[in-house]
Amino acid sequence: MKSMVFFCDSNCRAALISALEHLGIINRETATVRELLRLSWWRRIAKLPPGRLLEIGYDQRGFRVFVLWVKKDKELLPRLACSFPTAMEKEEEWKFIDALPYDNRWTGLARNLSLFLGNNFLVHYIFLAGIVQLDLNPYLPANLTPCP
């Protein structure tokens, strides 16, 4: 089974946006923050604990698309994903894609605010405002190799 996992350390926001963009459901370049706020996925994302996978759908190449988030040390996820099937002697084709490889000023602000305010609507809004402005072209899945 082929799988593609979008992950982030921003309460799954960036991972969900990237996954939906990959599936062609949204277009980051034209989507507004208000449109993103109306996505019905946010309720499910709010209940998703860190470390758990949530299946979003299938892409055109037959990959099952998942989202995943952790609070910190997200750089460990591709390493774990790479070594896991080998160590377990199982064959699996999966790709792990960092959906928030860098912060811009808005995601940085939201991250700092969330430390004091928690994950309220304001933080959510600012995060999304930052995420739609990210230029992720250098990080597109097609450019990624499955293992470092």
Partner: peptide
């Protein structure tokens, strides 16, 4: 070595 992924590591 799972560094700071302590709480979510089993779920992961």
């Amino acid at each position: 070595g799972r560094r700071g992924l302590k709480k979510c590591f089993p779920a992961l």
